[in-house]
Amino acid sequence: MTPTAPRYPLILAAALLAGVSFWIGRTHVDEGIAWVAWKGACVALLALWAAMNARNGDGWLITVVMVFGALGDVLLERSQAIGGGAFLAGHLAAATLYLRHRRLARSGSQTMLAVVLAIGIPVIAFLLTRQPLVAVYALGLGAMAGSAWASSFPRYRVGLGAVMFAASDLLIFAKIGPLATSPLPGMLIWPLYFLGQSLVAWGAVTTILRWKDNDDLHHRL
């Protein structure tokens, strides 16, 4: 049986084009409504692509993850607290999806890394900022990254993408603290974030479609 290929590749291509062009052009455009819309469109297009390929609850759950990501991108420009809340909701939705599909056969090192991500990310976030609310947010971020790494989704797509998202956020926290005057966070935050989201969307959607094909075949036999 040939696995179902994701549909609407032009939407995915548009998302990638939006993300790359925003990275290149973000500093050359005034941060007005058009700039915010451009920023939000990047992950919103990933959400649209995931929705167009959704066939079951898992497909809609990864769509929800991307929707909250797009909302977070836009709302952060109005309020860090509200934008962070949208991202936190997305992390919790993602962790729910990943925990539903835990990888049963894991090596000790894989399990250890998942635990390190889950615990280490909020600890590092707090040490960088000394802000309890940041640490609370980072608990969700760590749960998302750790559960992604321990899930049955492809580790070098979904797992790596989740870790890149977490690294992007840690750079944001470092920009608040020890890297306040460094150009490094500004150079790396968006590419890590958007590439991470893209890897998560691609890996999750293609894997869920494959699982759906296998489930349909099982029920026909």
Rank of each mutant, 00 (worst) to 15 (best):
A201W: 10
V205E: 10
S198G: 09
R103H: 10
S79I: 04
Y137L: 04
A15M: 13
Y98W: 15
L139K: 09
Y98E: 13
R220M: 10
S198K: 02
R210F: 13
R157E: 13
A114E: 00
A204M: 08
A148W: 10
M164K: 07
P9A: 04
R220S: 13
A50S: 11
V136I: 15
M66E: 03
G83H: 05
G161Q: 05
Q197V: 15
A5H: 14
K39E: 07
G25S: 07
L127S: 02
A70N: 03
I119L: 14
F68G: 04
H101K: 07
I124L: 03
L97S: 01
I33R: 00
P191T: 14
A93D: 03
L128D: 04
G32Q: 06
A93V: 14
G19S: 11
R102Q: 15
A41T: 14
G120L: 06
S168F: 11
S107D: 09
L99V: 10
L17Y: 10
L61R: 15
P191R: 08
M164F: 02
G177C: 10
P154M: 09
S168Q: 01
L61M: 15
F173I: 08
A51S: 07
P185V: 04
A180S: 13
M164Q: 03
G90H: 07
L133R: 07
T96L: 15
P185D: 10
H28F: 07
L46C: 07
H91F: 06
A95C: 03
L141F: 12
L10Y: 15
A145S: 11
T4F: 02
G120Q: 04
E31G: 01
G186D: 08
L113M: 08
V136M: 02
G25D: 12
F173E: 13
A15E: 09
V163C: 04
T63E: 07
T63I: 02
R220I: 15
P9W: 09
L117S: 06
A145Q: 04
E77V: 05
G140L: 00
A34F: 04
R26E: 00
A166Y: 03
A138L: 06
G140Y: 02
L88W: 11
G40W: 05
P9F: 05
P132Q: 00
T2N: 14
W60D: 06
S107F: 06
L171Y: 05
A204P: 01
V43Q: 12
A105I: 07
F194M: 09
A14H: 08
C42Y: 06
